[in-house]
Simulated assay, not measured.
Amino acid sequence: MRLDLADCRLFLCIVDAGSITQGAQRANLTLASASERLRSIEDAVGVKLLERRPRGVVTTEAGDALVHHARLMLQQQALLKDELEAFVSGRRGTLRLHANTAALTEFLPEKLAPWLARNPRVNVELRERTSADIVKAVEAGLAEAGLISDAVETRALQVRPVEPHPLVLIIPAGHALASAASLALSDVQGEPFVGLAPDSALQEHLNGHARRAGFELSYRVRMKDFRGLCELVSHGVGLGIVPERVVWRHHREGTYRRVPLSDAWAQRRLCVCFQDWERLSAPVRDLLEHLLAV
Rank of each mutant, 00 (worst) to 15 (best):
A6E: 07
A6C: 01
F11C: 02
L12T: 03
L12Q: 06
V15K: 05
D16S: 15
S19E: 06
G23I: 04
T30D: 02
T30G: 15
L31M: 08
L31P: 00
E36N: 11
R37N: 03
I41A: 01
E42R: 08
E42M: 07
V47N: 04
R53E: 07
P54I: 00
G56R: 10
G56N: 06
T59S: 12
A62F: 13
G63C: 06
A65V: 13
L66K: 02
V67E: 11
H68P: 00
H69I: 14
A70K: 02
L72S: 13
L72A: 13
L72I: 14
M73R: 15
M73N: 05
Q75T: 14
Q75S: 15
Q76F: 04
Q77F: 09
A78M: 06
K81V: 13
D82V: 09
L84A: 11
L84E: 10
E85R: 14
V88Y: 09
S89H: 07
G90H: 09
R91L: 08
R91F: 01
R92D: 08
G93Y: 08
T94F: 02
L95A: 07
N100K: 01
A103T: 02
A103F: 00
T105H: 15
E106Y: 02
L112V: 10
W115F: 12
A117S: 12
A117E: 15
N123V: 08
R127F: 09
R129A: 01
R129H: 05
A132T: 13
D133I: 00
V135H: 01
E139K: 10
L142H: 11
A145L: 07
G146D: 02
L147A: 00
I148L: 03
V152K: 00
E153N: 12
T154F: 10
R155K: 13
R160H: 14
H165S: 03
L167Q: 04
I171E: 07
P172I: 09
P172S: 11
A173N: 08
A173W: 10
G174I: 07
H175P: 12
A176D: 11
A180H: 08
Q189A: 14
Q189Y: 08
G190V: 08
E191G: 06
V194P: 01
L196D: 04
A197M: 11
L202Q: 03
L202N: 01
L202G: 03
Q203R: 10
H205W: 02
L206Q: 02
A210W: 05
R211I: 03
R211K: 12
G214N: 12
G214H: 08
G214S: 09
F215M: 10
L217Q: 01
Y219I: 05
R222K: 13
K224N: 10
G228T: 11
G228C: 12
C230Y: 03
E231Q: 13
E231P: 01
V233Y: 08
S234L: 05
S234W: 12
L239E: 03
R245Y: 02
V247R: 03
R249C: 05
R249G: 04
H251P: 04
G254D: 11
T255K: 14
Y256W: 15
R258P: 00
R258W: 05
R258I: 14
A264L: 13
A264Q: 14
Q267D: 12
L270S: 03
V272H: 00
C273D: 01
F274H: 09
W277R: 12
W277L: 10
L280G: 03
R285L: 09
L288R: 00
H290L: 04
L291A: 06
L292D: 11
